[in-house]
Amino acid sequence: MDIETFLGARAGVARASTLREAGFSRTSLDKALAAGRIVRIRRGIYSAPREAGVLALALQHNALLTCLSAAPTYRLWTLHEPSSVHLSPGHRRTPPGTLTHGRCLHPSHSWLPVAGLADVLIHALRCLPEVESLVMVQCAAQSGDISLDFLRRKLPGNRNARARSVLDYVIPRADSILEVLADYHFRRAGLHVRRHVELPGVGEVDFLIEECVVVETDGDTHLEPGQVKRDRKRNNATLIGGRLGLRFGYDDVVYHPERMVGQVLAVLEQARQGAFGAR
């Protein structure tokens, strides 16, 4: 494994001791530094060039990365790359072009200029659009790194009502960002949704809506030839089992959720009117 791959699996940053334990000698580190493949952001800490910029900025201003800018450190799901660096400067000023968050109230990362997970998520819930903060919290909560009850206690009062409402959309299990977002949009539309439902002859489906329409959310793996064949069989089995089926991809769920929900509602309305015959 080369050093870039190793760093990439660790949010782009590692201590020198960690690199040496992985088999990278001091000579190999010096060569990688000279070639610009890695960057030393401070004594004993190395980074991929891409991550070095924001970490160095935080160190330069004695601030902590937080919110969306800290998500890679904790391997949290995100929808978009941050357009600005999110910093928690304490009582200091941050450079122009950055997004300033309040001071951190919980222990920060043990060796990086990054806020602790609790502050990262609290800042995200207060700062980001609902769906963007939701996927970050979902990732942390379902991995057991933080509890929803803890976050609710940290978000008291009317001023945090919108942030707390996002927590209501965290689900016990999500296999992908698409499931989180689709569930959010379906429930916001007032639909009765069951997730990960086992159907005879079909297997587990992502969603069963109003006990009538099966909805599957397809990531990139569903474009692979073998998976296409399996999905086709599942589609047929869904119809044979007496239920209607719809499939939505990344573009539908992330960029056109209103259209996705509209299509589900249209199928439900046609079913109510008997367009598909009696079930």
Rank of each mutant, 00 (worst) to 15 (best):
I3V: 15
E4W: 00
T5Q: 15
T5C: 01
F6E: 12
G8P: 00
A11L: 07
A11W: 01
A11M: 12
R15M: 14
A16M: 11
S17L: 01
T18Q: 13
R20M: 13
R20N: 07
A22E: 03
A22C: 11
S25F: 04
T27V: 13
K31R: 13
L33N: 09
A35F: 00
G36F: 03
V39T: 06
I41G: 10
R42I: 14
S47V: 11
A48N: 02
R50A: 08
G53Y: 10
V54G: 00
L55E: 07
A58C: 07
A58W: 02
L59M: 09
N62C: 10
N62P: 00
T66N: 04
T66F: 07
T66L: 08
C67F: 04
L68C: 10
L68V: 02
L68I: 11
S69K: 04
A70L: 06
A70G: 12
A71V: 06
Y74H: 08
L76A: 11
W77N: 12
L79H: 06
L79Q: 05
E81A: 15
P82D: 03
S83R: 15
L87R: 03
L87F: 06
T94G: 15
P96F: 01
T98L: 04
G102W: 03
R103G: 14
C104S: 10
L105Y: 05
S108K: 14
L112P: 04
L117V: 08
D119S: 08
R126V: 00
L128T: 11
E130S: 12
V131P: 08
E132S: 15
L134N: 09
M136T: 07
A140S: 09
A140W: 01
S143H: 07
D145C: 11
I146H: 06
I146W: 08
D149C: 04
F150H: 14
F150G: 07
L151F: 06
L155Y: 01
P156Y: 08
G157V: 15
G157Y: 03
G157N: 07
A161G: 00
R162G: 10
A163H: 04
S165Q: 09
D168F: 11
R173T: 03
S176C: 11
I177N: 09
L181H: 07
F186C: 06
R188D: 06
A189M: 10
H192K: 14
H196E: 00
E198P: 00
E198M: 05
V202F: 01
V202C: 04
G203A: 07
E210Y: 05
E211W: 02
C212R: 15
V214S: 04
V215N: 06
V215D: 02
D218I: 05
D220I: 15
L223W: 01
V228Y: 03
V228C: 05
K229V: 15
R230N: 12
D231T: 10
D231Y: 06
N235S: 14
N235R: 14
L239Y: 04
G242S: 15
R243S: 02
R247I: 11
R247D: 13
R247V: 05
G249C: 03
Y250S: 09
D251Y: 06
D251L: 05
Y255T: 05
Y255N: 15
E258P: 02
R259W: 12
R259E: 14
V261S: 03
G262P: 08
A266N: 12
L268Y: 10
Q270G: 14
A271T: 05
G274Q: 11
G274A: 12
A275H: 07
A275G: 11
G277Y: 05
R279V: 13
